[in-house]
Nucleic acid binder design. Sequence first.
DNA 1: AACAAGCGGTGAAACGATTCAATTCCACAA
DNA 2: TTGTGGAATTGAATCGTTTCACCGCTTGTT
Lengths: 333, 333
Amino acid sequence: MSTNLRDVARQAGVSVGTVSNVLNRPDVVSPKTLERVQKTIADLGFVPNGFARQLRSGYSRTIGLVVPDVANPFFTEVARGVEDAASKRDYAVFLCNSDESLEKENKYLSVLIQQQVRGVLITPSDSKSHQYENLRERGISVALLDTETKNSSQCSVSVDDVRGGELAIEHLASLGHKEIAWVTGPETIPQVADRTVGVMRAAKIAKVEISTVRVALMNSAQGTDAVKKILALKKMPSAIFCGNDLLAFGVMRGLLDAGKKIPEDVSLLGYDDIAFGNSAAVPLSSISQPAYQLGVTAAELLISECEESEDHAHQQIKFQPQLVVRASTTKKK
Amino acid sequence: MSTNLRDVARQAGVSVGTVSNVLNRPDVVSPKTLERVQKTIADLGFVPNGFARQLRSGYSRTIGLVVPDVANPFFTEVARGVEDAASKRDYAVFLCNSDESLEKENKYLSVLIQQQVRGVLITPSDSKSHQYENLRERGISVALLDTETKNSSQCSVSVDDVRGGELAIEHLASLGHKEIAWVTGPETIPQVADRTVGVMRAAKIAKVEISTVRVALMNSAQGTDAVKKILALKKMPSAIFCGNDLLAFGVMRGLLDAGKKIPEDVSLLGYDDIAFGNSAAVPLSSISQPAYQLGVTAAELLISECEESEDHAHQQIKFQPQLVVRASTTKKK
DNA sequence: AACAAGCGGTGAAACGATTCAATTCCACAA
DNA sequence: TTGTGGAATTGAATCGTTTCACCGCTTGTT
């Protein structure tokens, strides 16, 4: 079979304990021995057996990442951030797509328990779920990703979605728009709910009228469908704000197909500022979130929680969204 | 700490062997004992330690997925396919981004060995690498993803890149283009090399002149940079074919910024047919690959290889690319 | 010379499951 | 009563690490 510690020890003429030290505490081994053992390890192509290591030490070096859908460019960026940060700390990442289904989410959490992950980074698909306590009881750290928590007994990394909603409406209002359509997904999604809060708050202050257009899934196809509903509104809005860029792309296509000009006839604003916004038919104005940074920060926070569990102070980090103006929004005529 | 087999055994008044049998071979245990032990397990909330189980049995239920970059929409789709298929079989997936660096790739392979994955799905960043043999010797199955292998001793799932290159040039030639720029990455990437073969073969037949413009990384930024090189060519080509859509988006932006009209001044053709092609400034014609299907098929193949290692027949599956014509390519004036 | 301190290194005891040869149990036949 | 065979159960060995008490050896101090 594959070579093990004992083989290396025999070959290098030392004890297994010493080889283990070379691996885990190189500083306590004499340089001469260190080098010899390292050479043997390289020669034999030895890689320690993770199970045995973890069995003995009680801890794995893996974390789970549960997101609604990596295919959503925002989460793709987040995932890269998580992966890069974890890799830097020599952690491996399990990728799980919950598709915003609580059932799938729970199934994945069970799998992650079985895999004995050290921690879990999760974007909950639902605001209330008790499963997390179950994980904690088993000694698995949990940190919330792209979700705020009022509960100070856990870490969270989020973007201020309320502020994002405000920023959007403030921008459109400042351009003179008084009737705005807000195209978004189900309110059960925490981010959606928060953005709506911001939208409504800013609308009240700026005396803007909001027509909410609800879609079931926040993807491009549903955006195109939503255009029919928008065109059927009693009064055609002069600006449209979409819950994310995917939705906005769909809306853009629907509008263009319907013969509307952007931004001359209607201004369009997205959310997430994904990379393709620049290359869109009309370069898309959007609310930018630091997705990659979000992932990196979350992973670092989670891992440090895992490793210093004693004196770890839970942190709730909140990033600020930013308005990025491109060609799709302009002054109301 | 958490309860273990011994605790259960003591509590139920049986030996650890019996408890293990209750878990793994309930049929050999007498009904009376079975029931008693199961009740004890439930009472204590006992969950077997996966490490110990796997250490002894030698097998895990995890696979590794190594791709150049999940942030590339093509691989994002592939990853979703892999994840969905693996999840259906109760396997968990480790996500690894090699960034087309052999060094990173090898580092990740070591990590995967440590994690004792059952199999690895990899898109090699380099055509020649011996590390895979190393994995096989350790009993880890390896299947090639988006890469063909002439070696019938391993599974591979790929798309016919040579044909893709041909399709592209045949399309452009049929529109009357005689000078075509081929914007692509390093030939060390197998897909790139194959597409080039197809390009050259079709060009020869159609009597088309190809100017190759090489970039280091196949992303949007480098596409924009490449435009300078294209504009500096002795003779401006009437069509540009890009190694992937990301590159094409960059080229598109560069061309538009330089005042060129697409497709009137120059036709532009991409590769991968990613979802945003439709929403681009000029809807992008492209060569489409069945990315999600590729991922699903690869994962199923790998897992079946892992589980029936004895009588497993290695398969090399090759999908066919398809031309998708949108607005960015047209007849030469 | 005696002793302490420190460094390198050793090897056996965990970790928590699975496995399997050995043992006990029990019913039934001789 | 003894013997037999099969089913149920046992418990020690095993997987490949990490950890830790302990042992020699060298060096420095008094």
